[in-house]
Amino acid sequence: AYNALLGEAGQAAFALFQEKLAQRGESGQTLDSARALFDLWIDAAEEAYAEVALSPRFREAYGDMINAQMRLRAAVQGEVEQAGLLLGTPTRTEVDSAHRKIVQLEREMRRLRDRLEAGGDASAGKSAEHPRAHR
């Protein structure tokens, strides 16, 4: 549906381009360079695309396409995870989990270091947070 709408925009662009050329011909305005012809084409194409892109049909088709791409991405990710498990390599889920744990440990280390630098007792804060820390 998305590609069909882009095709419609392309066809509309050619029709608008022909209209703009005809209007210039009727008014006696000439195109004196390839750049002027190109600019006229770009104006027609942008106008046609804007009309299609701002329509509810385009919004729906574009949303459907993006949703389908996200479902495909998730399915591919699931297949990659399965292949990783079969090959014994770390999966993205495992790497993401390890990364979260590392970030958490870095935060805890920073807090302990800050307490020590401030002259506080790091173990007192730790035992208050974790009552079984000294067993």
Score class of each variant (00 low, 15 high):
41 W>A: 14
76 V>P: 07
96 D>I: 08
52 V>D: 04
24 R>F: 05
116 L>Q: 13
72 L>Y: 02
40 L>G: 04
2 Y>T: 04
86 L>H: 12
78 G>F: 01
52 V>W: 02
119 G>H: 09
9 A>E: 05
54 L>Y: 06
49 Y>D: 10
41 W>E: 14
29 Q>E: 14
87 L>K: 01
55 S>V: 04
34 A>G: 13
124 A>V: 07
24 R>N: 09
132 R>I: 15
28 G>L: 08
82 Q>L: 12
78 G>I: 03
88 G>H: 03
77 Q>R: 05
33 S>P: 03
96 D>T: 15
48 A>T: 01
117 E>G: 15
25 G>Q: 11
96 D>V: 13
33 S>A: 07
104 Q>R: 00
49 Y>K: 12
58 F>S: 08
87 L>C: 04
68 A>H: 04
13 A>Q: 00
25 G>H: 09
65 M>G: 07
83 A>F: 08
128 A>W: 05
10 G>Y: 11
99 H>W: 00
45 A>V: 13
9 A>P: 03
68 A>C: 03
36 A>H: 01
131 P>Q: 07
126 K>V: 01
114 D>F: 00
1 A>P: 02
15 A>T: 06
23 Q>D: 08
91 T>C: 06
19 E>C: 03
66 I>K: 04
57 R>K: 09
71 R>S: 13
5 L>M: 11
9 A>N: 01
80 V>F: 09
71 R>C: 09
98 A>L: 05
15 A>N: 00
133 A>R: 01
74 A>M: 14
104 Q>I: 03
31 L>S: 03
6 L>V: 13
134 H>Y: 13
89 T>V: 14
65 M>D: 02
69 Q>S: 10
33 S>W: 02
85 L>D: 07
104 Q>A: 13
6 L>C: 14
53 A>M: 00
